[in-house]
Every structure is written in C-alpha cells, then in structure tokens.
Design a protein around this nucleic acid. Structure first.
Length: 438
RNA sequence: GAGACAUUGGUGUAGUGGCAGCACAACAGGUUGUGGUCCUGUUAGCAGGGGUUCGAAUCCCCUAUGUCUCCCCA
C-alpha cells in the first residue's frame, strides 16, 4: 500500500477496526454480558442505530453537551432529521412505548449491546463510535430494581475477571424536589458568582447541579458549604434512596456515596450511579493524579420521567450501561486471560494435483466430524505446510500425498514425536479422534 | 471549543542538515515428499503538502491522525 493510499483511507477519526487478534476479548465480553443478563431475566433488544432527532432533544435535555454538540444528525430524504444514537436508553424506551410493552407483565427487563455515536475529540478510551452494553428495567418503581441494575453492572465486570471495581451512588431527586433544590443552590452561588471559575459560570446557566462536580480548588471550597442535595430530597425520594442503599448493603458491592455525582442526561431522577475502576498504579501519588486515575466504566440511574417526556404514560424505569471498549481496555491491562477463538487440532497437508483435489473433501469430512482442522492449501511445498502446522500448534498433521491419494490412505503425523503412520482413508476420522483424546 | 506533545517498512526502533539502518514478522529457498533451531535471499518505510538550504527523516509553516490536559462522557 502506498503512503498516499494509506492516508486517504484511514478509518474515520475516532473510530477503529476490531481486528481478528482482538476478537477474543469482544467475544468474551458479549458472552459474559449475555450470561449475566439472561441469569437476571433480561431479554435482548436491538434497536436501529438511527432515531428521529427530536427524540433526543425531547428527552436527554436540549442543553446537555451530547444533544448540543455531539450528535451526528443528518437530513433524511423528505423526512424528519435523523440522528445516530448517542446512547441506548432512549431508544429502548421509545421501543417500549411504540410496542405497547406496558401490556406485558411488568417490569420488562431488556438488555442490549450496540455501537453508539458521539461527535467529540477522541482520546484513549473515548471514541466517536463506541459500544455500550446496557440493562434496563422498565415499568416498576421499586427501589430493589435500582439495586439490581447496579448489581448486574458490577457483576458483569466481576464475571469478566476485573479487579478493583467500585460504585459511586447518589440521588438527584425528582421533579418535585429537584427544582426547589436547584433554586436554593443558585441562591447560594449567585452571591458568589465572581469567585467561580469560567466553567462554573457556564454551569450556573446550563446545569447548576454540575457546579458541585467542579475540580477547581477555589470552587471546591465553596461547594463544601453549598446546600446538599441529599438533605433536600422529598420524602418519597428520601425513602426510595434509603431502600436502594439498604438493598445494596445486602450485596457485597463496595459502594460509596458521592453527593456530587450528577449524570449527563436530563432524564435521570432519583438514583444515579457510576461504576469505577480504582487504579492501583498511580504514579507520583499526588491527590490530583489519584483523582484522574479513576476510570468510569459505566453508569446509569433511574429515569421515571423519560416516558412522559416522550409523550407516553408514566413508566418508571431504571437502567445502566457499560462501555465495552473501556472494559476490554481494563481486561488487557489487568491481564485477564481469554480463550483463543481458533485453535485447530489437526492440520491437513496436500501434495500433488490429485491430492490437492481430494483434500477439499477430506477437510470437510473432518470438520463435519467435529474436528477443528486448519490448512494452507495455497502452499504446495510440504515444508511450508508443515511450518504452518507447527505455528498453529496442532497435535496432528495429516499428509495426503500423490501416493497416498492413489492408495486410498493418508499419513498421520504426530507433531510432538514426528512419528508417522499410514491410515486408511475410511478409518482416518475415527483414528484422529482417538489420538486427540490422549 | 481551548492547550501540549507526538507520527520512520506490517510491528518495535536507530538515525539532530550529508548514502535511511537494525530487530521481529511475512514470503521464498538451503537438490527426491517432512515443521520447530540455524543460514541465505526477497518484499516493505521518513503521515500529507508547502517553505528554508548546494543538500531535509532532521529546521520552519499548514493539514491529517494519535496521545495527554481541560470540557464532557462510556
């Protein structure tokens, strides 16, 4: 490939190819997510990668970063503008309402694994197309499902062999108590606006709850005395949150309350949470670098108002999602072992025109018998083919030469010892199977 | 949207203004139809464009991509 062609045809910025060598990680993650989901009664749902653009403006919040500047939106011929989905929850709710799933036994538990699209500056662990695995429980307001969703997210990580996972949790109230809190918060900060950093001034207008999350030291000093959301929850939200925590106490989940935790979408109510990896290898060890080392693997929360925002009836719901790229990144970093996908046991070698023709049939007979076979039929020298066999680490090579093809036999070579014997073609499958058992 | 650093064969790298080298990988050989180790050979690169210079991988500018801070998020 010339340099020019390479330049011209790179994968688009912030996207990447998942190459064969990495597929084992993806396969493992998909398998474990599916296993955990099914174990907890979640059924698979797949929604389109495109949705009506209005869907997101109505639900996620028009002023959220994602809706404001991270969506891939385009005109569809003659129809409403479409958007490549930036997240999964909204599509699931849209589908729930569209297909009248309120008529099913409640709650409806759904899971998905799908690519998401956001226009932003790529960095490590942050892409324009990334994959999320999500769990949603729709149609039930019981706090036990908040706890279950959190548990399932963490469990998926643990079943994948990840260490040092933890959960941060908070309640951001509901449409009854949050507005009141918000105005209290604004009152507190309004007198102190001058001292706030540039970003916080913007946050005051856009999303006051985010003020609490600021990392600037000066701002943080102010946050200490700011009104605390937890103290301003209405009775219902308070009781709900208390129960969520009590249920979590029954699990082994290491959770931490974080009263500053706020999530990026407007549709969240009551419980919000994030799954983190506590990184042990912090260089330098300063407090700042320690904070940075915390990597968010996923998050979620309750979204009781989403259905209404989409024009449906009240559907209380809670869900969470995990970033698959980030999980795989941690698996590699923590050196989690995953099985190789293609591990042939037998290698079929052909020599000469006649046996080359016959090898296709023999290969298929072996495969049909459940034996994992490999070949390099395109190479004609026995040397090259044996080298391939060796590289693949097979136990047995079958050599079908010109002589053997005529005599109706095949040579069976044990790769470790180099011992060879001639076996009749009709018996070869049985013999190979016996040898592989040893 | 703001700032910093980076980019040399498929991969990892050396080369600070004077012949682009090394290792691994890949491919082909090392005399009849036999792998690993070894030996030989082949393929393949200065991200793209412009500028300075007798001469640029090297210095300057622009672009692209990557990485890291912010912002935000998975």
């Amino acid at each position: 490939m010339t340099a020019k062609a390479k330049k011209q045809f790179q994968a688009p910025k912030g996207t990447f190819d998942i190459l064969p060598e990495d597929q084992k990680y993806w396969e493992k993650v998909r398998k474990v997510i599916k296993h955990v989901a099914i174990g907890y009664g979640f059924e698979r749902i797949d929604t389109p990668a495109i949705e009506s653009s209005d869907l997101y403006a109505l639900s996620a919040g028009e002023t959220t970063d994602v809706v404001e500047k991270q969506m891939y939106t385009f005109k569809s011929r003659g129809g409403d503008p479409l958007t490549l989905r930036p997240e999964g929850t909204i599509s699931v709710m849209r589908s729930f309402l569209e297909h009248g799933m309120q008529q099913l036994p409640q709650p409806v538990k759904l899971y998905y694994m799908a690519p998401m699209f956001r226009y932003e500056q790529p960095q490590a662990g942050r892409y324009r197309q990334h994959h999320q695995a999500g769990f949603e429980v729709l149609g039930d307001q019981d706090p036990i499902y908040d706890a279950q969703v959190i548990y399932v997210c963490l469990l998926a990580g643990e079943e994948l062999g990840l260490k040092n996972l933890s959960v941060e949790i908070n309640s951001i109230g509901c449409s009854k108590c949050r507005p009141a809190y918000r105005s209290q918060l604004l009152r507190y900060y309004r007198s102190r606006t001058a001292k706030l950093c540039k970003d916080c001034k913007r946050r005051m207008k856009k999303n006051p709850l985010r003020l609490l999350d600021c990392k600037e030291e000066k701002c943080q000093q102010m946050h200490v005395n700011a009104p605390n959301l937890i103290d301003h929850l209405c009775q219902e939200c308070h009781d709900h949150f208390k129960l969520v925590l009590e249920y979590l106490d029954e699990t082994s989940i290491p959770y931490v309350l974080n009263s500053h935790l706020v999530r990026g979408f407007d549709y969240y109510t009551k419980t919000v949470f994030e799954v983190f990896l506590e990184d042990e290898h912090v260089e330098g060890g300063s407090e700042k670098s320690h904070q940075r080392s915390k990597l968010a693997l996923g998050g979620g929360g309750r979204y009781d108002n989403l259905a209404k925002a989409l024009g449906g009836k009240d559907v209380p719901a809670v869900g969470g999602s995990l970033g698959m790229e980030r999980i795989i990144g941690v698996m590699k970093k923590q050196d989690v072992k995953v099985p190789t996908l293609f591990k042939p046991e037998v290698f079929l070698i052909q020599l000469g025109a006649l046996s080359k023709k016959k090898s296709l049939r023999l290969f298929e007979d072996l495969r049909k018998a459940g034996i994992v076979v490999a070949e390099s039929f395109g190479k004609d020298s026995i040397k090259a083919q044996l080298r391939s066999a060796d590289r693949l680490g097979v136990k047995i090579s079958l050599i079908l030469g010109q002589k053997e093809a005529i005599d109706g036999v095949v040579l069976l070579r044990e790769m470790d010892s180099g011992v060879q014997e001639s076996v009749e073609l009709e018996k070869i499958i049985k013999v190979v199977k016996d040898r592989l058992k040893k």
